[in-house]
Design a protein around this nucleic acid. Structure first.
Length: 314
DNA sequence: AACCAGGCTGCGC
DNA sequence: GCGCAGCATGGT
């Protein structure tokens, strides 16, 4: 499937601007999205972010850029009617968690001797979400037990083979494949892309569950209770505690969905000398208790800490 | 070249 | 319920 967009000169239409809340840094957010991995679901260049999505079921290509006190959103392909504008605005604000007041979290960090550098060094970094539950589940299954460089390669192969592509001004943008598309595949279709037997099986199984409406965002969100949501996910093959918690954290920002055992999290806890050994689970739980309500953000900021601050070289 | 990767399942106890 | 082998393959 391919869509080609006519490369009109000056075809970009400004759809809207979105006012930046306090403690919001587009630059910090871009740093996270562009931290050295090859993500095929958006493109960043010249401090601008371009992405291809389905809005209200219709494909659009849009670009976000920094406009001082606000973000500017331009339309590059497709159309957005007046009544769809709020949908796009909500999509972007949810993606960057722009409705949240971070000051209580920063107050907690400031009280912590080992982490009190974070509010300044990472100021305005938001917990950037994966806006689609199916994509989030597939992505976390792909990423299980392999390094991220390889995981992004696997994702790209899947998306390029089975997703919808759109070429605009010499760059190709992609939609993540639909559950209906992935459910139609067999394990043999994914083996040449270097998916393991089990990863292939899990992905197809999850796609089936979505296509048959046995699992959906709405279904999960309706549960409210964290344990119930976790169990609803773990019931599916290929989803364990880590995956369930990672996905709940990245799609819904469920604060107590801590991906315990995550190697990145453990590494960060070690470098901050919060733990000495990776098996000190009680110590980790005690540590997280100090951040009640902000656990997901804490994990995100600890991941952020694994790389140098974006402003360091400036 | 060994050891590690943003783990999970299935088995034996 | 808990521990552990096996998985499967690229990165460093």
């Amino acid at each position: 499937m391919a869509i080609s967009a006519a490369p009109y000169i000056c075809s970009m239409k400004e759809l809207m601007t979105i006012e930046k809340p306090a403690l919001f840094s587009f630059r910090e957010c871009l740093w996270f999205l562009d931290r050295g991995y090859d993500d095929c679901l958006f493109r960043i260049h010249d401090q601008q972010l371009t992405r291809f999505i389905l809005l209200d079921g219709k494909p659009i290509l849009f670009r976000i850029s920094d406009a001082g006190n606000s973000l500017a959103v331009h339309l590059l392909h497709g159309s957005v009617s007046d009544h769809q504008l709020p949908l796009l605005r909500n999509h972007i604000m949810d993606w960057f968690d722009m409705n949240k007041d971070l000051s209580p979290f920063y107050a907690l960090l400031q009280r912590d001797k080992k982490l009190q550098y974070m509010p300044k060094d990472f100021e305005g970094l938001r917990l950037i979400s994966i806006t689609d539950l199916f994509e989030a589940l597939c992505w976390s299954i792909i990423g299980q037990q392999i390094n991220l460089t390889f995981a992004y390669k696997l994702k790209r192969r899947l998306v390029e083979a089975f997703g919808t592509a759109l070429t605009y001004e010499d760059h190709t943008y992609h939609l993540f494949p639909s559950p209906e598309k992935l459910r139609s595949l067999s394990v043999e279709d994914l083996r040449p892309l270097q998916y393991s037997q089990s990863k292939a099986k899990y992905l197809i199984g999850i796609a089936q569950a979505f296509a048959e409406k046995k699992l959906s965002y709405e279904m999960l969100a309706a549960l409210k209770d964290f344990n119930a949501m976790q169990q609803a996910l773990i019931a599916h093959k290929g989803i364990g505690v880590w995956t369930a918690n990672y996905v709940l954290m990245k799609t819904m920002r469920v604060p107590n969905a801590i991906p315990y055992g995550d190697v990145g999290l453990l590494k960060a806890l070690e470098t901050h000398e919060i733990i000495k050994e990776r098996n000190e689970t009680e110590k980790i739980e005690r540590f997280f208790k100090k951040y009640k309500g902000w656990e997901a953000y804490l994990v995100f900021y600890l991941w952020r800490s694994l790389a140098p601050p974006v402003f360091q070289t400036k």
